[in-house]
Design a protein around this nucleic acid. Structure first.
Lengths: 122, 122
DNA sequence: TTGGTGATGATAATGCATTCTCATCATGAA
DNA sequence: TTCATGATGAGAATGCATTATCATCACCAA
């Protein structure tokens, strides 16, 4: 879905440029550089549009406010730096999840989050 | 830490009996059976005590309100039923997490959540 | 019994992410 | 240019989990 306004374009562009999940507030601050006066409500409205159309994904992790990132085709997981509280993408997946399921339980999807220190904070 | 009142004992007992992570509301409803008139504030106060003393753990997962369960010695993860929205413990862990880490990143801990249907909902 | 101390229950208050309201602004059709 | 439609920005309103407030209650020591 094409962005309809400069604001929407700025928001989408920041999501692409940062290349990691970001908070609406972070999105507002960064997109405000190229779109001065941008409002938080507009960020949320744009995110809603993008999530509804499948272009953006909302990620919720314990202890952090919700983050949003461009939807990716490749299955992946997340890393949360306990220093700077930033969230990063991790490529690939872990194995052996099916063995964890009790009898009679069916798996639809799964989420893996690794906590630690990123390169800059280590 | 020993429970100081009947209410605290009832709350702890429900955490033991249900044997899975529960919400404060669920805790209130169930503990109210053996402790009529129990208030939500008391549930939160008891949970705070128990979390601070390391006897209870708070679990936050995407799309669900926070859950609480007795702390266990064994490393384990969680299953969330998309039918009844209940949370279950999964014994064991998955492998290959270290391979997911980018260079320069250090892992402190991790969390795995499997979504699907439980025995009753499948 | 009588206090005193801490726990309880009801409810108000808080903090937060998110959505709503509404006046204003931008854009494209007539 | 004029109008209609939809998008925006500021801030109020909402929903929710959680915490604070405060009057009352339970229990133990003097």
């Amino acid at each position: 879905m094409k962005p309809k306004t400069n604001q929407q374009a700025a928001i989408l562009s920041v999501l692409d440029d940062l290349g990691r999940p970001v908070t609406p507030k972070e999105l507002l601050e960064t997109a405000s550089i190229s779109s001065p006066g941008l409002g938080l409500a507009t960020v949320y409205r744009a995110l809603k549009r993008l999530v509804d159309s499948g272009e953006v994904r909302k990620i919720e992790a314990a202890g952090l406010p919700p983050h949003y990132e461009r939807e990716r085709s490749e299955h992946h997981h997340f890393f949360i730096c306990e220093g700077c509280r930033k969230m990063f993408d991790l490529d690939g997946c872990c194995g052996g999840l099916n063995e964890l399921l009790p009898r009679g339980f069916r798996m639809n999807s799964h989420e893996v989050i690794i906590y630690g220190a990123c390169r800059d904070c280590d």
